[in-house]
Amino acid sequence: MKTAILHLFVLFTSLTLDAQKALSISFVPTIDHASIVLDSNYQYGDISLSISNLKFYISELALFNDDTFVANVGKQHHLFDAGLPTSGLISQEMTEPGAFNNIRFNIGIDSLTHSAGVFEGDLDPIHGMYWSWQSGYIHFKLEGTSPACPTRQNKFQIHVGGYQAPNNTLRKIILPVVTSSTLNIEIALDKIIQRIFGQKIFQMMSPGPTAVALADIFPQIFQIKK
């Protein structure tokens, strides 16, 4: 009798292991392909800078095969925070995930969620990703210092938000991938740095055309790391 139960147990365990596979996706922010460590100095061309805060929302992360939906990955809304190393890792137990050749996600929070009141977890306003004076999530936040900033304490503060047309800054990202159980996504901040220092946009804290133009760069900064 005991043996039978044990057999059953073994059988069940092995079935579960076969059927379930973990997929893990990591997000790694970089400047000039070097991983970002908060509050350390970077020399980027003739710009020297230090990043003190990098947070953004990854939402509706999903696997697709061409245009066919395959599976969701992780929570609907995920807050990436460069200050919390674990927040860059999103993993999902998969039951027969099937083949996929691209992953899709949004940078930011959709307008429906925006108007639906308060939520717990990653959407809780305690994360500093919600504007108090005018409703709206900050989709993407980048803060730091640079001697090139003529601002108080040489700070730059880039808060990209806005969920209503024509100032919606939610951006859809589609990345072609090869089916795998681990995917590493590099977030190359170079283009963002070039834009803010090139155009001297050191303070951005409200929705509008400047935020829209910066958000338009988002689809270019995510790439699969080989």
Binding site: S115, I126, S132, W133, S135
Partner: peptide
């Protein structure tokens, strides 16, 4: 009409330096 839902309204006076001058983090 800057606030789009009653849940989010209290954030404005809590955070405003000329009103309660705090933050939701401090309150929590």
């Amino acid at each position: 009409g800057a606030i789009n839902h009653i849940d989010m309204q209290a954030l404005a006076p809590i955070s405003h330096p000329g009103e309660m001058g705090s933050s939701i983090n401090e309150v929590v």
